[in-house]
Simulated assay, not measured.
Amino acid sequence: MPTAKPAHLVMIGGKSPRQHIWEAIRAVNAGPKELTTYAVARKSGQDDQTVRAYFRDMEQAGIVSKVRNVSRFDAEWRLLKDEGVEAPRVTRGGKVSKYAAGAENIWRALRILGEFSAAEAATAASVNGVSISEIGAHVYLTGLAQAGYLTRSGGTPGVKTRFRLIPSRYSGPKHPIYQRDFKQVYDPNLDQVVWRKSDQEVAE
């Protein structure tokens, strides 16, 4: 049995189709209904073809397995790995991005170390088979800084930007999720979007 994580935690606003599908998968899996392509498509509000494609990619990645074909276009599935709130980033060939795991490790390291550069964050986060690039770490840390979790210093020629955790903004063990495509940060500890770039632009 996969380790269950609270299925009621969902992202608020600005979700990608795969995020909608993933949340539906977790919700259906936690209920009495069979986890089928059809049930997830109806629950998520996404078209059947998009849902089938995501299931196919996750099957190749070992996140789900097919139990049986219900019909030509429908199938029953078993969830093998509950990856938590953030939808697994899976390529068409079944390759899983380690970005989410890297961000989780950065958040954990911030709690312990308090301050580091993107390069140091990437090194600290690249453990236990997880790796994140310096650029990826910089993007994540910048997102947290924009949301008010971190302060920034440096960033001048020859001086790398350093990021420091604001102790009062540590909200819990689950890493805040920077949704780069939507320019917003969702905090699963608070179950809410805590920052949107669009809101900031309106305020300015």
Rank of each mutant, 00 (worst) to 15 (best):
E76R: 12
G45M: 06
S171Y: 08
E83I: 10
E59D: 09
G148K: 06
V202T: 14
W107Y: 05
N128H: 05
S16F: 02
K197N: 08
P173C: 10
I177A: 10
L150K: 07
G158Y: 05
G158E: 03
A137Q: 09
V90E: 01
R89F: 04
Y178I: 02
N69F: 15
R72C: 06
D74I: 09
A39F: 06
K43E: 13
D199I: 08
V159H: 01
H8E: 09
S97G: 06
H175M: 05
S65I: 12
G45T: 02
L113N: 03
V28R: 07
Y38I: 10
W77S: 07
T151P: 04
A109N: 02
P6L: 04
V85D: 09
Y170A: 01
D191C: 05
A118G: 01
V194R: 00
I21Q: 14
E201T: 14
I112W: 06
A101D: 14
E104N: 13
G93S: 11
N189A: 06
V139P: 01
Y140N: 05
D82K: 03
S198W: 10
V202Y: 15
R68G: 00
V202Q: 15
D191A: 08
T3I: 12
Y99C: 04
V70P: 04
L190W: 10
P188K: 14
S168W: 09
Q46A: 12
V40F: 05
V202R: 15
G94V: 15
V70M: 04
A124L: 00
I25T: 04
S171H: 15
P17I: 02
D74E: 08
A100C: 01
V10A: 07
Q19L: 15
V159L: 03
L141N: 03
P32Q: 15
E134M: 04
K66Y: 01
M58E: 03
Y178P: 04
E204R: 14
R92Y: 11
R89Y: 00
G114N: 02
H138I: 08
V159Q: 04
A145W: 02
G114K: 02
P88H: 09
R180F: 07
Q19G: 14
P17M: 07
V159Y: 00
V10I: 12
L113R: 00
A137T: 11
A87F: 00
S153D: 02
K81W: 15
M1C: 10
T156V: 05
R162H: 06
I63L: 15
V67R: 12
A39N: 15
E104S: 14
P2H: 09
A53F: 14
G148Q: 05
A75F: 12
R89G: 07
V96E: 15
A24K: 04
G102R: 05
G158P: 06
G93M: 07
D187P: 13
